[in-house]
């Protein structure tokens, strides 16, 4: 008997497909023509994204940056009662690139490409995609005079704009010693400051309540990290969870801050010394996102992108004009995973 699952209405099949992981979808896609048709339809890609649970997290950590290879490891954070990290798999990009992993957004992986060894500005927070715009901030790597400008690029209007970060916490002498990071929480942009002086060892998280309105920055939470850093090598909030716990990267380690003001360090995710640590997260379903990252095409971004126009333009060439990031994601899903 030819089984009658093939006679099921599409919506049932789609429901099943929406909860299976991408690794299983890869197999499902090639099962038969009608399944291939369902699974390669862009509308399905959206469904899969929305069906994703929020509890698990995939991380991609760049661990090795050699002359010709960029290698990364993909980790899965099992987030729950006993949070722990699992290494999911290692991946490598094509040879001939000297590239640094910057971040990822909607299935795109952003790479920093450099042809010369020289001091580079840091580019962060490319994943801060709100209201159809990407946002990022730039740190100059040499002094305490950190910039407080947020650059953004709107995909629809193809306009660049700048805005300001909230006023950072300053120490008693009026200096600020912290790293800033941008991200998205709900529909809002947030900024996190990681202060690392012994008398000011907090992480401050501010949310921009009205998008684009500098005056609407409001402090959302402060957590004391009390970490023995004099100066962490890097800081990036990877992901917020619903209960305001959050995961962040600092000083080559992953940390999980929970609402009880406690911070947990990942045990074995120490990132090779001397390499710029970078991490990215996809908040899709557990096990699902790892394939996203593997399958994502890389956007090579030129080293000299200090004028923000260049870097964003590079990113945009990969996409088509006027495409909302969500649609873009759908297209990437089709092109890459299907």
């Amino acid at each position: 008997m030819s089984c009658y699952i093939s006679n099921l209405p599409h919506h049932i099949l789609e429901t099943i497909f929406s909860i299976v992981t991408i690794s299983a979808l890869k197999s499902c896609r090639d099962v038969c023509k009608s399944w291939k048709h369902i699974l390669t339809n862009p509308s399905f890609a959206l469904l899969h994204q929305h069906g994703c649970a929020n509890n698990n997290l995939i991380l991609c950590l760049g661990t090795k940056l050699t002359g010709s290879y960029f290698e990364g490891n993909i980790y899965r954070l099992e987030y729950g009662e006993s949070s722990h990290f699992n290494r999911a798999r290692t991946w490598a990009l094509e040879p001939d690139f000297t590239a640094g992993f910057v971040n990822s957004c909607n299935g795109l992986v952003f790479m920093l490409y450099s042809s010369f060894e020289r001091i580079k500005p840091y580019y962060r927070s490319f994943n801060a995609s709100v209201n159809g715009s990407f946002h990022w901030i730039i740190d100059i790597d040499d002094d305490y005079d950190r910039t407080n400008i947020v650059y953004s690029f709107n995909f629809e209007s193809e306009q660049f704009t700048t805005s300001l970060l909230p006023i950072p916490p300053v120490d008693i002498y009026g200096y600020c010693y912290q790293y800033a990071d941008l991200g998205v929480l709900g529909d809002s942009l947030y900024c996190s400051y990681f202060s690392y002086l012994p008398w000011n060892d907090c992480i401050n998280i501010c949310v921009m309540k009205d998008h684009g309105v500098v005056e609407s920055w409001a402090e959302m939470l402060v957590i004391e990290h009390r970490m023995p850093f004099w100066e962490p090598r890097d800081f990036k909030v990877i992901k917020f969870f619903e209960n305001r716990n959050f995961l962040f990267l600092a000083d080559y380690h992953l940390w999980l801050a929970n609402s009880k003001n406690k911070i947990m360090r990942s045990e074995d995710q120490r990132i090779s010394e001397g390499r710029k640590a970078a991490a990215a997260a996809q908040q899709t379903k557990s096990r699902g996102a790892q394939q996203w990252l593997i399958m994502s095409r890389t956007t090579m971004i030129d080293n000299n992108m200090h004028p923000p126009e260049r870097c964003a333009c590079k990113a945009v060439t990969l996409q088509q004009k006027g495409v909302q990031p969500e649609l873009l994601m759908a297209r990437k899903m089709r092109q890459i995973t299907m």
């Binding site: 089984c3 429901t15 690794s23 099962v31 038969c32 023509k33």
Partner: peptide, 27 residues
């Protein structure tokens, strides 16, 4: 049931999924 099915085809080959659902290969 949907979840159970999703779990059972996790990380399986195309052939396996085909047999699992009893679907004919029409490629």
């Amino acid at each position: 049931l949907n979840q159970a099915v999703a779990d059972r085809i996790e990380n399986k080959s195309v052939e396996y999924v085909r047999n699992f659902f009893g679907i004919d290969n029409d490629f």
